[in-house]
């Protein structure tokens, strides 16, 4: 068992040392190619890749800031437009109100004039009518006393008495008063 292990270890050591990382004979090779690689990557990055990416990023940054500025401008414009609109709206509203108030006042004046005119006409008509009514009423009272006297004379005659015309008219006048 022991010899076997030793043999195996020895074989392994012959084929490849236990840890290839500690095989110093390959160090020179690795270091040489590493330096070549690093120089190559450094040249690629420093000459081509990094300036290009920096340029693209800067360009995009510029574009974004430019776009943001433009957007802010547009927003300011939109705000100004809205303000102007609101102002115009308010002005229109006040104007409309003045117009309405003026129209109202005009109408009021006209209305008052018309009412005054109508009042005068009505008053005139009323006066005429009252006069007519008074005439009619006076006429009617006369007619009523005449009819009443005649009727009373007729009634008295029908009853069979003779009536004094003066007494009858006095009675009728008496009754009409009441």
């Amino acid at each position: 068992m022991a010899t076997q292990t030793n043999d195996a270890a020895g074989q392994a050591a012959d084929a490849a040392p236990g840890m290839p990382q500690l095989d110093f004979s390959t160090f020179g090779n690795q270091i040489f190619w590493l330096v070549v690689t690093l120089v190559a990557i450094y040249l690629i990055l420093d000459r081509i890749a990094l300036p290009r990416i920096a340029e693209v990023l800067a360009e995009r940054q510029d574009r974004i800031t430019g776009d943001i500025a433009a957007a802010e401008d547009l927003k300011a414009q939109a705000l100004a437009a809205e303000e102007a609109y609101n102002k115009a709206l308010a002005e229109a509203r006040t104007e409309a109100q003045t117009i309405v108030a003026k129209a109202k006042a005009d109408m009021q004046v006209e209305l008052e004039a018309a009412i005054a005119k109508a009042d005068v006409e009505i008053a005139a008509k009323t006066a005429v009518s009252e006069k007519a009514i008074a005439e009619i009423r006076a006429g009617a009272l006369d007619s009523v006393s005449l009819v009443a006297t005649e009727t009373a004379t007729a009634v008295v005659a029908a009853i069979g008495g003779s009536a004094d015309a003066d007494a009858i008219s006095a009675a009728v006048t008496e009754q009409m008063k009441g």
Binding site: T37, I44, L45, R52, V56
Partner: peptide
Amino acid sequence: TNVTLWMALTVLAVFALLVLGT
């Protein structure tokens, strides 16, 4: 050696990503 090969592939990959990609 295989070190050379894989380091060369590394360089190619860096080149592909940062130069060809952009």
